[in-house]
Amino acid sequence: MPDGGATAMPSLARKGRGAVTNPGVRYESSHSELYDDGWGTLDTDFAELPPLATTLTRDHARSAMSWNDSPDIGFDRSLNPYRGCEHGCVYCYARPSHAYIGLSPGLDFESKLMFKPNLPELLEKELSKPGYRPKPVALGANTDPYQPVERTLGITRRVLEVLERFGHPVTIVTKGALVLRDLDILQRMAARNQVRVCLSVTTLDMKLARVMEPRAAHPLKRLAAVTALTKAGIPTGVLAAPMIPGLNDMEMERILEASAHAGATHAGYVLLRLPLEIKGMFEAWLQEHHPDRAARVLALVRETRGGRLYDARFGQRQTGSGAYAELLSQRFRIALRRYGLEGRPGQFGALDCSQFQAPRAEARQMELL
């Protein structure tokens, strides 16, 4: 019998899922390794994996808003109805956050979701506090507020109802065409200059989209959503993110051109970020789906990150550094001018906070009757 020993993790690729691995939780004191007994049992066990179902668990949150003081982010508060995201985007910077609840950033992140049914009620309490000072809140800063489970759970819509009632400004970033379901609320808030929406469009290549973000809305549906939102009077932009060197960055101009034709009022981009476990997960995904260009893509990523796969420094995380990153930035600025997407108002600062007002106590009591 051949000598056994620890071996590389077999691919866990499943149809409709993004990650091809499920790394352990970094906070655990012990980790397991696969062992090949020499009889090919690993190949047999992992040859035909069944579909991976999505499970939902209640998250009994104690607070609604998450706060940050990062100089790289244009908001200081956010709301996240869900932990984990079924869209399955392999590159998602939020994946490592699943380790905080004892789950893997890999397949667990996109299949073991937690939802916050009491988020609207918690939000109302926080907004009603006497010392609260309004500033635009980002809805879905960590995971997508319009991922597939929102269609049945409706937490995001209930959150928007609270924000509208309080006259509180909000910004939304999503890959979900489901945002059009809430067009009525968004249109009323837009009339008061209290909402901006941004659709994330990573690629226009349908084949690439299917493996890179398998359960997100079709890219053309996202552009159609931009058109519908804009026609309804809702300021809507597009985020070309992430731009992955050697994989989809050559599409930047096409994405911005299509976005402008769809009616986008502003645009942005973000360079690929690979913090913590995402580095290894992204490498495995490249080897699974793009083995012919994996080495080239990783080399270009290192070129934009000072020789490493990730640079977490403020001021560098979003755009990278070096000649390749600077070229990408120049291309973006030129495309903004070419397609009329420059000179837009500030994405967050222009929203109106002056209309914020907590409903009177007696009005809230009447809602209980």
Rank of each mutant, 00 (worst) to 15 (best):
G320Y: 01
F109Y: 15
T304I: 08
Q316M: 10
L336K: 02
P10W: 09
A228I: 00
T152M: 10
Y146V: 06
G346V: 04
E253A: 15
T171D: 00
R364T: 11
P81H: 07
E121V: 14
G18A: 10
N22P: 05
G74D: 15
R95P: 01
A13L: 07
Y35S: 03
H290D: 04
Y35I: 10
R133Q: 12
T227G: 12
T152L: 05
M1R: 10
A363Q: 11
Q357P: 02
H289L: 08
T156I: 08
G131S: 13
N118L: 15
G307H: 13
R333L: 14
L271H: 02
T21H: 06
Q316V: 14
C198G: 08
L180K: 10
G88S: 09
R188Y: 07
R58M: 05
V226P: 04
D69S: 12
R222H: 07
L153D: 05
F282K: 04
G322V: 13
R14Q: 12
T152P: 00
D3S: 09
G84M: 04
S259E: 05
D59E: 14
E326H: 13
M189K: 11
M250Q: 09
I255D: 01
G322E: 13
S329Y: 01
T44Y: 14
L298V: 05
L180E: 07
A363D: 14
A267E: 03
E150V: 06
L271K: 03
D36F: 08
M9R: 07
I278Y: 01
R317W: 06
E110C: 12
A284K: 10
P275H: 11
K221H: 12
V197D: 02
A323V: 15
R133D: 01
S30D: 08
T156A: 10
L52Y: 10
L239P: 01
L56F: 08
G306D: 05
R196L: 08
R308I: 00
V137R: 07
L183M: 13
E164D: 12
W67G: 00
Q187T: 14
